[in-house]
């Protein structure tokens, strides 16, 4: 499903080059449950952004479902994000003026889906995430766990095949956090490919495949069942 080949991404901090991604090669199959861990500044988030087509690598190749994404135009990348990729962020990133229902509906609105079909899909998602009673509440009237559930609803409403989660439990207490993790794992069991970036080793250990990054390199990939073997640097 995902093929990364010698991916590089370099940022300039002042006059110093920071190698956020340093020759990353990875292969991810459909339905995998992967955690990416590593210290701050190890390039986890950059990897997530590149995988999510939010950032473009400087060199290397990224094939998603067989398509070379590095050659895509901005509009085409936007369409890919919309149709194939869902994002869940640590700080939820809900639009504060929109209700839970409207936030979940937003990707459908951007995609130009007809209102009747939008309503049907959003209602189903609300029920699936036990948010039906909170549907018409604004984000600031919701608890952290509820907010993250709304964010997950928004991420999956377009039925993407890849779900990218950046510290999904980082802002939550342990109870809400485990609720959210349960939902994510449930989605993974239904077939969605789940990639979680986290500092939380307990959360990281729950994944079936663990990737560890340091200084922009993959230093561990367990269990090493993938095509690209990690080399201990």
């Amino acid at each position: 499903m995902i093929e990364l080949n010698q991916l590089c991404r370099t940022f300039m901090l002042g006059d110093q080059a920071v190698h956020a991604l340093d020759n990353i090669s990875l292969s991810i199959s459909p339905g995998e449950y992967i955690s990416v861990m590593g210290p701050s500044g190890s390039g986890k988030s950059t990897l997530l952004n590149v995988l999510g087509l939010l950032d473009v690598p400087d060199s290397g190749q990224y094939r998603l479902n067989g398509t070379d994404t590095t050659a895509l135009s901005d509009n085409a990348r936007a369409r890919y994000r919309r149709e194939h990729i869902g994002f869940v962020f640590q700080s939820y990133h809900l639009v504060p003026r929109l209700t839970a229902r409207e936030n979940i509906e937003l990707p459908l609105v951007l995609a130009g889906v007809a209102p009747a079909e939008r309503k049907r899909k959003v209602t189903a998602i609300l029920a699936q995430l036990s948010l039906t009673e909170r549907a018409d509440h604004l984000p600031n009237q919701l608890s952290g766990g509820q907010r993250q559930r709304v964010a997950i609803g928004r991420a999956i409403v377009m039925q993407p095949r890849l779900l990218l989660a950046d510290e999904p439990t980082g802002n939550l207490d342990s109870q809400s956090g485990s609720d959210v993790v349960n939902i994510l794992e449930q989605l993974n069991r239904q077939g969605i490919t789940l990639l979680v970036v986290t500092h939380d080793s307990a959360l990281g250990q729950r994944a079936r495949r663990h990737i560890r990054m340091v200084d922009g390199r993959v230093v561990a990939d367990q269990p090493p069942g993938s095509a690209a073997q990690a080399s201990h640097a």
Partner: peptide, 16 residues
């Protein structure tokens, strides 16, 4: 700004 980033993440193109 954050909202713009979010809209892009959930599939809005620059032109949108």
């Amino acid at each position: 700004t954050a909202e713009i980033g979010l809209l892009k993440a959930i599939g809005a193109a620059n032109s949108d």
